[in-house]
Simulated assay, not measured.
Amino acid sequence: MKSINKELYVGVFVLIGLLCAGYLTVVLGNVRLFSPKGYTLYAYFTSVSGLKTGASIEMAGVEIGNVSDILLDKTRLEAKVAFRINPGIQLSEDSIASVKTAGIIGEKYISISPGGSDIMLEDKDAFDNTESVLDIESLVRKFIFKNEN
């Protein structure tokens, strides 16, 4: 009888440990268990260096969505970024999508500056106005080579 109790306690302990490990995997890995709600928008950038899938989309410092995909548009030869916007958030067609850095060396995110148009973006629409990431390496290179001449 005592060995059955010990085995039961060990089994429950192992089960709780596995559930905790699974929970941490889902939370820390940003795994989405259910299909995300909201709608998809696209933006084209000349450079999205450092931007990763899952990065936040912010407006006025508030997260309103996440980057769902980053790929190269072969016809425009620009980075095509797809992101999910939370339901209930309406963005006007003249809004500006900018790639920004959180802090000095922080991770990249997309900041949305609202526009003033009455026409709202719908599912699968693309932003007309974008600002790419500031490439510090090319700025330093220009500064160094400019001073050598």
Rank of each mutant, 00 (worst) to 15 (best):
1 M>A: 07
4 I>C: 03
6 K>A: 00
9 Y>Q: 14
12 V>D: 02
13 F>G: 06
15 L>F: 13
17 G>N: 07
18 L>T: 05
22 G>F: 15
23 Y>T: 02
24 L>Y: 11
25 T>S: 13
25 T>G: 13
26 V>P: 01
29 G>K: 00
30 N>M: 08
33 L>M: 02
33 L>N: 03
33 L>G: 05
34 F>T: 07
34 F>V: 09
35 S>Q: 14
36 P>D: 01
36 P>F: 00
39 Y>C: 01
45 F>T: 04
45 F>G: 00
48 V>A: 11
50 G>W: 08
52 K>P: 04
53 T>G: 05
55 A>S: 12
55 A>P: 00
56 S>Y: 06
56 S>N: 11
58 E>V: 10
59 M>C: 07
62 V>R: 12
65 G>Q: 06
66 N>F: 12
67 V>R: 05
69 D>P: 01
72 L>E: 15
74 K>H: 10
75 T>E: 14
78 E>S: 10
78 E>T: 13
79 A>T: 01
80 K>V: 01
83 F>E: 02
88 G>C: 08
89 I>G: 10
90 Q>Y: 08
91 L>N: 04
95 S>D: 07
98 S>K: 10
100 K>T: 07
101 T>H: 03
102 A>L: 09
103 G>H: 04
103 G>Q: 09
105 I>S: 13
107 E>S: 11
108 K>T: 07
109 Y>F: 09
111 S>G: 07
112 I>G: 01
116 G>I: 06
120 M>R: 09
120 M>E: 07
122 E>G: 06
122 E>Q: 15
124 K>R: 14
126 A>F: 11
126 A>H: 12
127 F>I: 05
127 F>Y: 03
128 D>A: 07
134 L>G: 08
134 L>K: 14
137 E>D: 13
139 L>M: 13
139 L>E: 13
140 V>C: 03
142 K>E: 15
143 F>A: 14
143 F>C: 10
144 I>R: 08
147 N>W: 15
148 E>S: 15
148 E>Y: 14
148 E>N: 13
149 N>S: 13
